[in-house]
Simulated scan of single mutants.
Amino acid sequence: MLVLKAVSVLVAGLLSVLAVSLLMRGMQAAKVKAPRTDDRRNRMRRLRQDPRTGVYYPED
């Protein structure tokens, strides 16, 4: 009976270590930044308002 308890504690410890290692890998993947894309697309466009209609148009 003592051997069965020891084996179960050993297996639980091993599974805990594996779970923690997988969690740490996931945390490292979250730290990785995405590569920058085209800056022109990410830039905020300035808008100009048409005085007659009130509609906004992008400034080019």
Rank of each mutant, 00 (worst) to 15 (best):
D60N: 14
L4V: 03
A12I: 00
D39P: 15
P51M: 00
D60C: 10
R48G: 06
V17P: 02
K31A: 08
A12S: 05
S16H: 09
P58R: 01
A12Y: 01
M44I: 07
L22D: 05
Q28V: 11
L18K: 14
M44C: 12
R43F: 05
K31Q: 09
L22N: 07
Q49P: 10
A6S: 13
A29M: 04
R40D: 11
L23V: 14
A6P: 06
L23N: 05
A12H: 02
K5H: 11
L14I: 11
R48V: 15
R43T: 06
Q28K: 12
R36K: 14
Q49L: 00
A12F: 02
Q28F: 15
K33L: 11
G13N: 05
Y57R: 08
V7N: 07
V55Q: 03
D60P: 12
G54T: 00
V55L: 03
P51T: 01
V32I: 03
R48T: 12
S8F: 07
P58Y: 03
L4M: 05
G26I: 00
P51L: 00
V11Q: 04
R48H: 13
D60T: 13
A30E: 05
E59Q: 04
V3H: 06
G54L: 00
L10I: 02
G13W: 06
R45K: 11
L4R: 06
L15W: 09
V7L: 06
N42M: 08
R40N: 15
S16C: 08
L18Q: 12
V3N: 07
A29R: 10
M27Q: 04
R25D: 14
L2F: 08
G13H: 09
M1P: 03
Y56E: 04
D39I: 01
D39W: 08
A19R: 00
R36A: 15
V11F: 04
V17L: 09
R40I: 06
M27F: 03
G13V: 01
D60I: 04
P35F: 00
L15N: 07
L47W: 01
D39L: 02
M27V: 01
V11T: 09
P58N: 10
R46I: 07
D60M: 06
D50R: 00
L22Q: 05
R43I: 00
L4E: 15
T37A: 10
D38G: 11
R40T: 14
R48E: 12
D39C: 06
P51F: 02
K33A: 14
A34Y: 00
L22R: 03
P35T: 03
E59P: 10
V11W: 01
V7P: 12
P35C: 02
V7S: 15
V3A: 14
E59T: 14
V17W: 13
L10R: 05
A6Q: 08
A34P: 05
L14Y: 12
L47S: 08
R46T: 15
Y56G: 01
E59V: 12
K5L: 11
P58D: 07
R41K: 14
V17Q: 09
D50H: 09
M1C: 11
V20A: 13
